[in-house]
Simulated assay, not measured.
Amino acid sequence: MTTLTFAHAHSQVHWPAHWRDFVALTKPRVMTLVVFTGLCGLLAAPGAIHPVLAFTAILSIALGAGAAAALNQWYEADIDARMKRTANRPLPAGRMDRQSALHFGVGLSFFSVLLLGMATNWFAAAVLAVSILFYVLVYTIWLKPRTPQNIVIGGAAGAFPPVIGWAAVTGDVSALPVALFMLIFFWTPPHFWALALFVRPDYAAAGIPMLPVVSGEVATRRQIWLYTAIMAVAALAPVLLNLTGLVYGTVALIGTAVFAVLAFQVYRNHELDPARMRPERRLFKYSILYLFILFGAIVADRWMLA
């Protein structure tokens, strides 16, 4: 391990580069949902794949997501230093230098794509490469600092894992993985804006044009309600298109109804103090559980129909 130097608050601090800091760069908590949706895409796909190759495919998706997260933190190190909830990340806290993070992110990106291509097929590897590039170049570098609609378009980056999992088995993409992509795509705005509402002071301090900062809380709550309605259609689309059966349909209907109730509570809330935004916190926490439940139901439904 090398000694890294980081200038913070006009002083030089020396820290050893610890392996835990490299793990932290991959955002392991965020990666959990990415890995799960990728696994569900793989398990729902028709055909068979050897368990070792299936494990390698999911590992590749995890490594690719970790690589994108590392590059995101490399690029946003200065921004993270200005935000309370991110100030203790390895780069703004001075536990690692930016060059190490850059090399780690780029190396992990190439390794994840090559590993997936050699273990399964190069189509799946190409989709993984596109997802990494989209998150880093389109969302992090282009959209996030420039437009309050950053999370709407940029949300596509997080929607790729089930498509990659499916493609790892089949070598192509059909209607169901596209439907799952659209579900995550339309789920992302209400999920992320619920978080953005109660961490708005952080984004304002960092100069990031998130919707609550630019348009205010009222407009953001209205947009959450609007995108929840669109997401509801996307959630029920697999049933309406006859791609899934009764198990998924029942779970999606009940789960989405709960989501809609929580989103309506956010819409009706007029609290401006982030510390007291209970409906927003409830919606954010439930939205994560919601996606776990729906994707689990997809797998159960497909296996029951097989």
Rank of each mutant, 00 (worst) to 15 (best):
S174T: 15
A119I: 00
R281D: 05
R95C: 06
L272S: 15
L71M: 12
A17P: 08
A252R: 04
M96W: 05
Y248A: 00
L180P: 05
R268T: 09
I208F: 08
V169M: 09
T188R: 09
P148F: 13
P16I: 14
P90Y: 04
L197C: 08
A62P: 08
L43V: 04
F295Y: 07
S109Y: 11
F134M: 09
M118C: 15
L114C: 12
P90R: 00
A57G: 14
F160Q: 02
V199Q: 09
L71H: 11
I58G: 03
W166M: 13
V136A: 08
R268H: 13
P189Y: 00
V299D: 03
V261P: 00
R302S: 12
V299N: 06
A263P: 11
L211H: 02
P16N: 11
A196R: 01
P90C: 06
A9F: 13
I224V: 07
A204D: 14
F55T: 08
P148E: 10
P190A: 09
A87R: 15
N121S: 09
A175F: 12
Q223H: 13
W303G: 01
L143E: 08
P161K: 02
H191L: 09
L291N: 10
F264S: 11
L262R: 04
A260Y: 09
A101E: 14
I224A: 04
F292P: 05
P162E: 03
W187K: 06
L137G: 14
L63H: 10
F259D: 02
T220Q: 08
Q99T: 14
A81K: 05
P177Q: 09
G296Q: 00
S215N: 13
V138N: 07
L283G: 05
Y286N: 02
W303H: 09
L253I: 13
A9M: 04
L133Y: 05
R221N: 05
L25R: 03
A263E: 12
D202L: 04
G38W: 01
I79V: 15
W15F: 14
G94D: 09
A7T: 11
D273Y: 00
L243G: 07
Y286F: 15
A62S: 10
G296E: 00
L116M: 13
H10C: 10
M304L: 15
W303A: 10
A17F: 13
G207F: 14
L42I: 01
A194N: 01
F6I: 11
Q99D: 05
W166H: 10
R29A: 07
A93P: 00
E76T: 00
A260D: 11
T120Q: 07
M304T: 15
